[in-house]
């Protein structure tokens, strides 16, 4: 058995939260729904990223709620252009910063982070091509997909990140169909396949783990991808008060495994005995039609995926493992 060194700071005592950076760069007065997991996630990401950050936002919930003219919830430079091209706009900004630094028009020693925020629709579906191009070219950009598992901004339509069996307005559960009919697209693995230095999954229910991963992503040169699990009380049909709890349960049941892949090396950052998926599924309106058979199918898939991640972790941490990332 290979010993994997795991970060411990994420699971310190409750008082550890006080260690989180105090500066708020995604400011209040935004118009996200009550208990919005994405807004909470953005707030945490911005704490980690800090002031020297340019944010590129794809069209979507977070863009809408944070920028109805004349208000902006962004204390850092922020740009929104369209739905599918956030990674492309970020590529251009990265190129600009590189050349302006080379020419001395920007201080070459000043580190400027570029962070993209895009939803699951803007990432898994319409923005996938631009994201792939950005990662393949290795731009110095951190792409954060806040995944609320459907097109929430337009009223809960299914995306390719909508989980199997979930009811949405375009994948409704009916007499002959049971909701979303195919498995959630595995975006972190698509990012890993690009051989970029850093890929991670985060959930704002684990804020210190999130902050650490964002900082790591920004430290490493080149493109980084972070998949942020964003609980959506409105779209999922859960009480807003349970938003953080739902995120925690998604992690604890293995529905949303927390891990990071640094230069090709996998590391599970939450690896405990998993709770049954039913605990996560049962209190959400979007899953209430699921039959025991379907829940069993989901459980098998979750177990298989978690086991696969453990295998990947072990295989990629062997002393003789050589990663192509970063070479």
């Amino acid at each position: 058995m290979i010993e994997v060194k795991r970060p411990k700071e994420a699971f310190l005592s409750v008082f550890a939260y006080r260690m989180a950076p105090k500066e708020e760069l995604f400011t209040r007065g935004h118009r996200a729904c009550q208990g919005c997991g994405a807004a909470l996630g953005l707030r945490h990401v911005m704490k980690a990223a800090g002031r020297n950050t340019i944010v590129v936002n794809a069209t979507g919930c977070m863009e809408i709620v944070s920028s109805p003219y004349p208000y902006t919830s962004w204390a850092v430079p922020w740009i929104h252009v369209a739905f599918e091209n956030a990674a492309a706009v970020a590529s251009g900004i990265d190129a600009a910063i590189k050349v302006l630094k080379r020419k001395g028009k920007l201080d070459p020693n000043k580190k400027i982070n570029i962070v993209v925020f895009a939803g699951d629709g803007g990432t898994a579906d319409i923005g996938l091509q631009a994201l792939s191009g950005m990662m393949a070219r290795g731009h110095n950009v951190l792409y954060v997909c806040y995944d609320n598992e459907a097109y929430m901004n337009t009223g809960v339509q299914g995306s390719s990140a909508t989980p199997y069996g979930a009811h949405t307005t375009t994948t409704p559960a009916g007499k002959v169909k049971f909701g979303q009919g195919y498995w959630k697209k595995n975006l972190p693995e698509i990012a890993v396949a690009h051989g970029i230095p850093y890929v991670a999954t985060v959930c704002p229910s684990f804020p210190l783990d999130l902050i650490r991963k964002v900082k790591r992503a920004l430290e490493l040169p080149g493109a980084a991808y972070i998949h942020l699990f964003a609980v959506c009380p409105t779209g999922w049909g859960i009480p807003p008060a349970y938003a953080v709890k739902a995120g925690r349960l998604a992690v604890e049941t293995g529905i949303f495994p927390l891990y990071e892949v640094e230069y090709g090396r996998y590391r599970l950052t939450f690896d405990k005995k998993l709770k049954p998926v039913e605990e996560y599924l049962k209190f959400q309106r979007r899953f209430r039609h699921l039959t025991p058979d379907l829940i069993k199918t989901i459980q098998e898939r979750v177990d298989a995926e978690f086991a696969r991640l453990r295998v990947m972790e072990e295989a990629t941490n062997r002393p003789d493992y050589r990663s192509v990332s970063g070479i």
Partner: peptide, 28 residues
């Protein structure tokens, strides 16, 4: 020519990147 040449994956991205670069202060 002291410039960044981005080999984009589509024209949609070509214009998006030029727009981003232009607003970031570079002649695009």
């Amino acid at each position: 020519l002291n410039a960044e040449f981005i080999t984009v994956e589509s024209e949609h991205t070509a214009m998006s990147a030029a727009l981003g670069a232009s607003l970031a202060g570079a002649r695009a």
